[in-house]
Structure formats: structure tokens, C-alpha cells
């Protein structure tokens, strides 16, 4: 379990991390999202003990990274932004060095490295010098390095950078697989990756947490009840009918897809179901509804909305546990 409390990091007068607190439970995969310079890497560097925080604490399974660094660092595998590989070593030599650095017992090293290289699929390059490997393979060696010693916690800073699409999918599967037995924090620019892998997403902007939740709920909460509907009939009459209704707060006209039908996006007033409203309007005016589809914000849009809102002073705190349970219950119904 990772616990981060009131983390602050100042570089001179510039505050890179502003009072961040969060918890990652065992077996969770937490995704860090944020624009460049948001403080993702700084936070990760502090958690792993590479740099020290100005104030605040980090504990890994109850071991403080500053007071008990040896025990805490033993439990962490870290893949930094640039894989920390020695160009003039072969892959095996390098991983062996990392194993010795982590104090792995001599007779355990070989089976451990074989297992890890097999998992990450780098066995066939094990004898090559790292300087002769492509960026994708260096990245994989970096990931393999993080796994040496089988740490409970993995911190991965943009693990899929520099990989080709096929490798990205492979690495994702590897990370998902690892997520079953590890606690993972990963940062990424690629939002689809985060929503595919992570159980929870944390969006950071300018050194502050602006939103924390599961990818689905984050998208739900921000998009509200938005529906795309397709209605047969005269476009102007339809739009006018929806705009004049009190129960519809937002009407957005889309480009026509089907001949003789209008596509619009509607948002309902709180406490009402816009689908019902749409049905009633259609019934009154004699329109025919062809399609009703829930229109959720993609994580990209959520990300943009949240970072923009954060700049305007709106914040999205994590839903309280009871509230979250209620929401889940409602969803199940």
C-alpha cells in the first residue's frame, strides 16, 4: 500500500507539487494523468526516494521512504521516464547487476531473470549490448529492471513511450497481468491506455490533484445525462420544440446523417430523464424518434474539461464512499 500525505516540492520559488495526498490500496492500478510539467514525474521521483520532498511523507507498506529508505526501496520497482540502463552492458549483465543491487540471493538470480525476461519477451536479446537495442527494447529492459527482486509496488513513468502499436498492446497486457499481484502507479499521456489499464485515474494539473475516480465514473460525472437523439421530421421545428422545453437545459444540433432526420444532443434538467422528456415532446408534436444513445465524454474530453476547470477554480473531489456505493447501486438497477 502506498500512502502519500501532504506532499510539497519547491524548486526555489517555483512550486512543482502543491500539497498532494492520496492512497493506493494493494492490487490497485492508479493512473497519473496530466499535461507536461504537471508534476507527475516529480511526484513519482519523490515516492521512489530519488528526490526528497520539501514537506510531506510517503510510506510504502508502512515504511517511510525517508526514515526507513532501505526497506521502502526494496518494495519498489521503478521505471523512470528515461530507462536507467547502462549502454555498455549486455541485457543479462545489466539485469544481474540490478539483482545484486537489490540484494537478491545468488542462487535466486538466474531463475528470477529467466522468468522476468520471459515475461517481458526480451530473452532473445539477452546477449546484446544495450546500446545496440532499439528504443522499444530499451524501454522493455527498463521495465524488466523494475521487476527484478519482485517488488510489491511498481512505479512506471510512461511505460509505453517509444513502443510500436503492437508492443504497446503487449506491454499493456503485461502491466494488467502484473496488476493482479502488484500495486501499480503509472503515468501516461495516452488516455485510452489509462482507461484500458487503470482501476483508478488521478488527474494532476500544475502540481495539484484536480480529479480522482475510476475512468468510467469520471466520464459519467462530468458528462451528466447527455443523449444523442435522431428524430424524423422538419429540423427547425424539432430544434425549436426542444429549445422551448423547460426540462431540457442544453440542445446541440449535429450534422445530418440520415435524410429527413435531425441529430441533436440534449441535456436534461437535474432529476429528470431527458429520454422521457424527448419521448413526450415527440408524442405531443408527432415526431418519430429513430435513435436514442447515451453520449459520454471520452477520457480525452474529460481531461481537457478538468484541466480547464481547474484553472477556473472548479474542483472535482473524489466522491465520498457512501455516495459512490449509491451510484454503483443505481447503475446496477
Amino acid at each position: 500500500m502506498i500512502e502519500v500525505n501532504n506532499l510539497v516540492k519547491n524548486y526555489g520559488k517555483y512550486q512543482a507539487v502543491k500539497d498532494i495526498s492520496f492512497k493506493v490500496e494493494d492490487g490497485e492500478i492508479l493512473g497519473f494523468l496530466g499535461p507536461n510539467g504537471a508534476g507527475k514525474s516529480t511526484t513519482m521521483n519523490i515516492i521512489t526516494g530519488y528526490i526528497s520532498a520539501t514537506s510531506g511523507t510517503v510510506t510504502i507498506d508502512g515504511h517511510d521512504i525517508l526514515k526507513d529508505p532501505k526497506e521502502a526501496k526494496k518494495r519498489i520497482g521503478y521505471l523512470p521516464e528515461i530507462p536507467p540502463v547502462y549502454m555498455d552492458m549486455t541485457v543479462t549483465e545489466y539485469l544481474k547487476f540490478v539483482a545484486e543491487l537489490n540484494g537478491v540471493k545468488k542462487h535466486e538470480i538466474k531463475p528470477m531473470l529467466d522468468d522476468i525476461m520471459d515475461k517481458i519477451k526480451i530473452t532473445h536479446v539477452s546477449g546484446k549490448l544495450i546500446k545496440n537495442l532499439s528504443k522499444g527494447y530499451r524501454q522493455r529492459v527498463g521495465l524488466a529492471q523494475a521487476l527484478v527482486g519482485y517488488p510489491d509496488v511498481l512505479i512506471l513513468d510512461e511505460p509505453s513511450v517509444g513502443l510500436d502499436p503492437k508492443q504497446i498492446i503487449e506491454i499493456r497486457d503485461v502491466i494488467k497481468e502484473l496488476g493482479k499481484s502488484h500495486t501499480i502507479i503509472l503515468s501516461s499521456h495516452i488516455l485510452s491506455e489509462v482507461s484500458a489499464i487503470c482501476t483508478r485515474v488521478m488527474i494532476i494539473n500544475k502540481g495539484k490533484i484536480v480529479a480522482v475516480d475510476t475512468p468510467e465514473r469520471l466520464s459519467d460525472r462530468l458528462s451528466g445525462d447527455r443523449y444523442k437523439i435522431r428524430i424524423k421530421g422538419d429540423k427547425e421545428a424539432i430544434v425549436a420544440a426542444f429549445k422551448s422545453s423547460d426540462l431540457i437545459t442544453e440542445t446541440e444540433v449535429l450534422d445530418d446523417v440520415e435524410e429527413g432526420a435531425a441529430d441533436i444532443i440534449i441535456c436534461g434538467k437535474e432529476g429528470t430523464d431527458p429520454r422521457e422528456t424527448a419521448f413526450n415532446i415527440a408524442k405531443d408534436k408527432g415526431f418519430v424518434i429513430l435513435l436514442v444513445k447515451s453520449e459520454k465524454l471520452s477520457l480525452e474530453e474529460v481531461f481537457l474539461k478538468v484541466t480547464e476547470d481547474a484553472e477556473n477554480g472548479v474542483s472535482y473531489e473524489e466522491t465520498a464512499p457512501e455516495e459512490a456505493a449509491e451510484a454503483e447501486e443505481a447503475e446496477n438497477k
Binding site: N45, P69, K73, K74, I76, P80, I82, P84, Y86, L101
Partner: peptide, 14 residues
Amino acid sequence: KQKTDQLLLTSPVS
């Protein structure tokens, strides 16, 4: 320069 100090300093070595 090679950023390998990140490996050394995050390992359980003083």
C-alpha cells in the same frame, strides 16, 4: 548524464 543515478538512488543501497 545517463540518468542511471535514478537506478542507483532508488535501489536499497545507501
